[in-house]
């Protein structure tokens, strides 16, 4: 494409340490290595193993793959919240990550979280105040706003997080399955918000297991498998290949529609 790139991911590898357990091979389990379960139970997970792609302004890209294939880790590395082992990420402007697990402060009320989230994203106190009502409207969680977030349902939590993060008007927005927890009305609203970000020349990266969401919101798909990029291309092409490989029949949009008309 001849467009201006907004995001360049150059051979990114991400490895993180995890504490509390360690993977041992069958052979190690029979030897003195067994002790590694009790002492030095620290393991390294190579979640992303060399991914490169270029995204342009105004593009909306879906990211698909199995659970544990490295999708979320990739988005975190792009957002700059998880360090890369090697390789580099270049971005035009600020990147913001909206995820199901993007934990705000569970013990604090929704109101406090709106203020804290806005400030953390670099807004001034005045901006936070100006956008407060907009965030509240968008989240639509009513008087739960005054309750601590631990009292929220997962859907309400993700609504509020989505509202907080997208109010900061990021140039690149990454959505990590956050939409799947919402109800139909919230999904419609967030789709509008995503379209608005795209129309302002932003770039959207969307992780989803819902093929219909990917179809309706994206114009390109990345298929991540085992920490590597398996396929990068047009929506139909990639989804078809993915369906074939996973053995899951995926209804294509055109036949699905004609069936609906026929029925």
């Amino acid at each position: 494409m001849a467009d201006r790139p907004s995001l360049i991911v150059d051979d990114v590898h991400v490895t993180y340490r995890t504490y509390g357990g360690r993977r041992l091979t069958a052979r190690q389990q029979k030897t003195w290595h067994t002790i590694g379960r009790h002492v030095g139970a620290v393991d390294k997970v190579r979640a992303v193993r060399g991914i490169s792609f270029v995204a342009d302004h105004g593009e909306s890209i879906g990211v698909i793959g199995h659970n544990g294939s490295g999708k979320s880790t990739l988005l975190r590395a792009i957002a700059g919240v998880l360090p890369t082992e090697s390789g580099a990420v270049y971005a035009d402007g600020t990147a913001s990550l909206l995820g199901v697990n993007a934990a705000l402060m569970r013990d604090l009320t929704g109101e406090r979280n709106i203020v804290l989230g806005g400030l953390a994203l670099g807004q001034t106190p005045t901006q936070v105040e100006e956008r407060f009502d907009e965030v509240v409207d968008f989240a639509g969680i009513g008087d739960f706003l005054q309750l601590p977030m631990r009292a929220y349902s997962s859907g309400m939590g993700s609504r509020l997080r989505f509202a907080i993060s997208s109010a900061a008007r990021p140039d690149i927005v990454m959505i990590d399955e956050a939409l799947s927890t919402g109800d139909a009305e919230f999904r419609r609203r967030s789709r509008e918000r995503v379209d608005q970000i795209r129309s302002e020349a932003g770039t959207v990266l969307l992780v989803s297991h819902s093929m219909s969401t990917i179809r309706s919101m994206c114009d390109r798909v990345l298929w991540v498998d085992g920490g590597r990029l398996r396929l990068d291309g047009q929506v139909d092409e990639v989804l078809e290949a993915y369906a074939e490989a996973t053995g899951r029949p995926v209804a294509r949009r055109t036949p699905a529609r004609s069936r609906a008309v026929a029925g």
Binding site: V54, T84, V89, Y90, D92
Partner: peptide
């Protein structure tokens, strides 16, 4: 890719 990033003035993240 790094050259492309430099050409369009993209900032390195992280």
């Amino acid at each position: 890719l790094a050259a492309l990033a430099a050409e369009h003035g993209l900032q390195r993240v992280g």
